[in-house]
Nucleic acid binder design. Structure first.
Lengths: 255, 255
DNA sequence: GTGAGCTTACTGGTCAGGCCAGTCATAACG
DNA sequence: CGTTATGACTGGCCTGACCAGTAAGCTCAC
């Protein structure tokens, strides 16, 4: 082993990548703030000394990353966008679709995230956040009469409110993504299976229990109830021989 | 409100986006598997009925998403890549850099993931997986004499082994991503601060405790120790007034 | 027959220049 | 003073071309 000279793997860097890097760093550094505009493509061509197709390739990449947006005819040039988690969501959705993550894994992950969010929310929530959760519960209650569509929306809103109260945007984003992935996989079945007032009432009761624990500041109970609720709700969609990890999560705080 | 006709927001779809979509879906559907090749750019031009710059814009986007790779001169055309979490890491790093996510949130998320992984591993691990963890611990022990560089590598390998034993690839990938993001933020500081044998020995002892709990099948203890260890290791990098959520996670299983 | 070396037909990377449709500021008009 | 038409821009897309690589296949000496 020759420690004197360490060579790194080299990979040819395309022109468009250099352009992407420069603009990206300018945004990260704060030289370019959301709402500000980039020079026009033709202007960038002269600034970077590259051709228009090359500059455009760079802009397309930045655009697909959600950093800028080009509008045809806009005399101000491409716009720097405010940060959004859309890119993260896209990538995570890809992970789920691509890596053929199983239903069991998805739900296990959801139990972890939701449980942790509930636990943190129980300790950190403000009065306003608590009130927000209560409002979504009220909406759920009303929505039982309307139908599953409305009920599900309020359901999501509740979990969203809990995630916000956890004060952790990573939990918020990941939970949102995983929830979307789960729903995408079973939306057709769940719409029929759960479209009964009785089931919705039971779900509502579970949510109320979680809310109670959060109100009481009991993180342990909040996490536990949250996980158990998810298990009961979704276990039916998981083959029996794959339920081990889920049960492990439910039992986690017990004994 | 007119319920009869629901119009959705429309946004002009560029040609290159349609191409991206088609190829993306072909990959997700499994029609294109990793290792397989895309037709050459000029061939794609005829298949899609678009010009080469347009096709290239699509390829650049797919390339930046880590789905394909183009090599100049390769007669087989662009290659479909196996899934990689690089894109996720990039997006999450961006999320952090934009200051929407604080160091505290990152570490809190890491505590949640690592704790859950340890907990699940304690219940689900096979003998082989246990042996793999033991090996990484041994490597860590040896690496103390070598330096922080090696030690850190073995450290990562241990957490990776635990994540694998949790049987949940979402935990595995997310943990890996978050770990990378944390390290990217403090790598310069941590290399100096922790390059002492004493600190490494302490870290090693913590890891051994986690391993013990996993071996004993005690998920609760494994999660708790794992979280506490992370807290002690990283708390110094978090402003004091932001440590609340972290402490909440440490105390989670107590009392 | 077989291996080494060269040729060739491709590949992707980049460029120049052009056309079109859309947008917007402004100047001309009522 | 408000309205409308105009023109100078914008980005979206295309054609055609050149270059530097790669690798397969051919040639030719052994």
């Amino acid at each position: 082993m020759n420690d004197g000279a360490q060579f790194r793997q080299v990979s040819p860097v395309r022109l468009y990548q250099r352009i992407v890097e420069q603009i990206e760093q300018a945004i990260v550094r704060g030289d370019l703030k959301p709402g500000q505009r980039l020079p026009s493509e033709r202007e960038l061509v002269t600034q970077f000394g590259a051709s228009r197709p090359t500059v455009r390739e760079a802009l397309r990449v930045l655009e697909s990353d959600g950093l800028v947006r080009s509008r045809p005819g806009d005399p101000n040039g491409p716009e720097i966008l405010p940060f959004s988690s859309a890119g993260l969501t896209k990538q995570m959705t890809r992970l789920v679709q691509f890596d053929n993550v199983s239903m069991a894994e998805l739900i296990a992950f959801r139990m972890i995230l939701d449980g942790s969010a509930s636990s943190l929310a129980a300790r950190l929530r403000s009065e306003e956040e608590l009130a927000a959760m209560e409002r979504t519960i009220a909406v759920m209650s009303d929505a039982i009469e309307v139908g599953y569509e409305e009920f599900s929306k309020a359901d999501v809103a509740f979990h969203e409110a809990v995630a916000v109260a956890s004060r952790n945007s990573l939990i918020e984003v990941c939970n949102q993504v995983v929830r979307g992935a789960v729903l995408a996989l079973i939306s057709d079945k769940v719409a029929h299976a759960h479209n009964s007032a009785a089931l919705m009432r039971e779900s509502l009761r579970h949510h109320q229990e979680v809310l109670e624990a959060i109100r009481a500041g009991d993180g342990l109970a909040a996490a536990h109830i949250s996980r158990r609720k998810l298990y009961e709700y979704y276990a039916g969609y998981v083959p029996e021989n794959e339920r081990g990890p889920l049960l492990a999560l439910v039992d986690d705080e017990e004994s």
